[in-house]
């Protein structure tokens, strides 16, 4: 009863107070002029959103052309801080890098997103896999575009990764101090090929089935670990315990192989690839950034080797 009486007192009619139209509202003096001022301030914020506290809390750096802002703009952004603040002026040219490493990374990004969307419509089982592809192609809105883009981006990525390696070789960028990063890059190349290969089986059609059959048949010839390889039988290898069996989860390409390909393709290899990519990008920065275009060195300037 006490509480309801207090509430009733609070909602009592406003008392007029003073001549300038200001009123007492819940114990606060309300001045129409002041409210107008505040409304104008909010309107001004719409005109100049960069001045608002919300904007400043998200983007900590001013968007102007001073060197400080440009540097901080890159360094204080979680997505951009992969970059250094400044680069070699000639490295910005397309002709030196061909942009292939960056394009490979972007294609990996495209493949991740299209792949996740495809996973919504796909079951890795012998009963449903092929039907899911038909469903994607004929019923899912933009399903065909999605699948096409996933496949062509994969093809493109295999090409761009090879071209990236070709460029890095031609510019001698694997030389000291970047030796280790080249090796990480080779592993990423292998992972790219494996990613593409494991994806080949997933539609469960003739093309993928026979491609994977041809591919994994080679595994039975592994020396010592395959039942048809040199010294395989001497090591006790049969079609039911060799390395091919481990890859396929069986002696033929069947339901288990489909499930294994799916898990390798969607979880394991992307995980490895992402991990190695983190190392790769990190080392690009830690090894002194992009390798060039460097100042050319004369033969007479070779320093004697210290061991």
């Amino acid at each position: 009863m006490e509480a309801s009486k207090k509430a009733a007192a609070k909602s009592a009619p406003l008392a007029t107070n003073g001549s300038n139209g200001s009123r007492q509202l819940l114990g606060v003096t309300v001045d129409p002029q002041e409210i107008k001022q505040k409304a104008l301030m909010d309107l001004n914020a719409i005109k100049q959103p960069t001045k608002t506290e919300v904007y400043k809390s998200i983007f900590r750096v001013k968007h102007d052309q001073t060197a400080r802002s440009r540097t901080l703009g890159v360094l204080s952004n979680v997505f951009l801080h992969l970059h250094p603040a400044r680069v070699n002026r000639d490295a910005v040219r397309f002709s030196f890098t061909w942009g292939m490493g960056g394009i490979s990374f972007y294609l990996f990004w495209v493949l991740t997103w299209t792949g996740v969307l495809l996973m919504f419509y796909y079951h890795p089982t012998k009963v449903q896999a092929f039907r899911d592809i038909l469903y994607l192609e004929h019923d899912v809105p933009f399903g065909k575009l999605l699948r096409n883009m996933h496949r062509w981006a994969a093809h493109a990525m295999v090409l761009t990764v090879q071209l990236h390696m070709f460029r890095v070789f031609l510019t001698g960028s694997y030389k000291k101090p970047r030796q280790f990063n080249w090796s990480v890059g080779v592993i990423l190349l292998v992972l790219t090929l494996l990613l593409s290969f494991t994806g080949y089986l997933l539609p469960d059609d003739q093309l993928g089935f026979w491609a994977v059959t041809v591919g994994t048949n080679m595994a039975r010839a592994t020396p010592m670990l395959g039942h048809e390889g040199p010294f395989g039988p001497q090591f006790g290898m049969t079609p039911f315990n060799d390395v091919r069996f481990a890859l396929l989860g069986g002696s033929i390409v069947d339901a288990n192989a489909l499930l294994r390909a799916y898990i390798w393709h969607c979880i394991a290899i992307p995980g490895f690839a992402a991990t190695f990519m983190i190392v790769h990008f990190w080392r690009v920065r830690k090894d002194g950034g992009i390798s060039g275009p460097n100042r050319i060195m004369l033969e007479s300037e070779i320093k004697p080797l210290r061991r």
Partner: peptide
């Protein structure tokens, strides 16, 4: 990528059939 994906369709053959060998049966291009 958009133009490529709109104009060309990813291949899809018959459902996998272990008793019908593709000739030639080829691995992925790489």
């Amino acid at each position: 990528l958009m133009v490529w994906s709109i104009t060309l369709d990813a291949p899809l053959e018959e459902p996998a059939n272990p008793s019908l060998t593709m000739n030639p049966s080829k691995a992925p291009w790489y």
